[in-house]
């Protein structure tokens, strides 16, 4: 286990050390202490290593991640795991706004609640939130799965494309062109696998699926007010 004191080492040196790890590195376990809400911790990693951040993080932790597993032992600031490509990010506490935004792949697990705009413009990432999510989540979500064990805030899935949204609790309101969908066997399978991978104690049958009504895909003058 390699331990980095972020206060002593500084952010750039820390990220540089993590970026230097190749696919066959034997230094696979890293721990970052004294995070103290710093920005951009463990951003842009591209190696199969496991990084554990002790304490809460600021903006953009684990952004652009590829391959790495990043555990945040605290809460996470805005833009956590933004544009993730692959790998896994686990937040033990809550996550601030736009967690997992624009992510192309990988799995983001939030054990607490996520704030507004969770999964905005997601493009293939899987996000599992054990608690609730805030307003405007999955706005313009294109693909991937957003799983919420708790409740969702206002305007869920506004203008979404083909992302699947699974919510166990209440949805305060659906956004434009987002609707309740039928839960078919293949969806239950996807959900079962994601819940298991995210360590979530919930049954797939308890969830409701939401997705695009596909009315905004093509221009229709009757929808002018919704564009």
């Amino acid at each position: 286990m390699q331990t980095i004191d972020l206060e002593k080492t500084g952010l750039r040196e820390t990220n540089k050390m993590l970026h230097a790890q190749a696919a066959n590195t034997n230094q696979t376990a890293w721990e970052i202490v004294n995070a103290k809400g710093a920005h951009a911790i463990a951003c842009g990693l591209d190696a199969p290593i496991e990084v554990t951040v002790k304490g809460s993080t600021g903006y953009y932790c684990a952004g652009m991640n590829q391959q790495a597993t990043i555990n945040i032992h605290g809460s996470a600031g805005p833009g956590t795991a933004e544009n993730m490509m692959s790998g896994k990010v686990v937040v033990e506490g809550d996550a601030s706004q736009y967690a997992g935004a624009t992510g192309h792949g990988g799995l983001l697990v939030i054990k607490g609640n996520a704030s507004s705009r969770c999964g905005i413009s997601m493009k293939g990432i899987n996000i599992v939130v054990h608690g609730n999510i805030g307003h405007m989540s999955a706005f313009m979500a294109q693909s991937g799965n957003l799983v919420v064990l708790g409740d969702a805030g206002d305007a869920l899935g506004d203008s979404c494309y083909e992302a699947r949204l699974f919510v166990r609790g209440m949805v305060k309101s659906l956004g434009a062109d987002c609707e309740k969908k039928e839960m078919r066997p293949e969806h239950l399978e996807i959900l079962r696998a994601l819940l298991a991978e995210a360590g979530a104690d919930a049954k797939p049958e308890e969830f409701t699926r939401y997705g695009s009504a596909r009315n905004l895909y093509n221009f229709d003058v009757d929808n002018a007010s919704a564009y």
Binding site: G37, A38, S56, G58, G77, G93, D94
Partner: peptide, 17 residues
């Protein structure tokens, strides 16, 4: 930001939201 709060006494066990 959370950074502003990190040096307050007992922040590790505070309710943060």
């Amino acid at each position: 930001e959370y950074r502003a709060l990190v040096n307050l006494p007992g922040i590790e066990t505070a309710r943060v939201w």
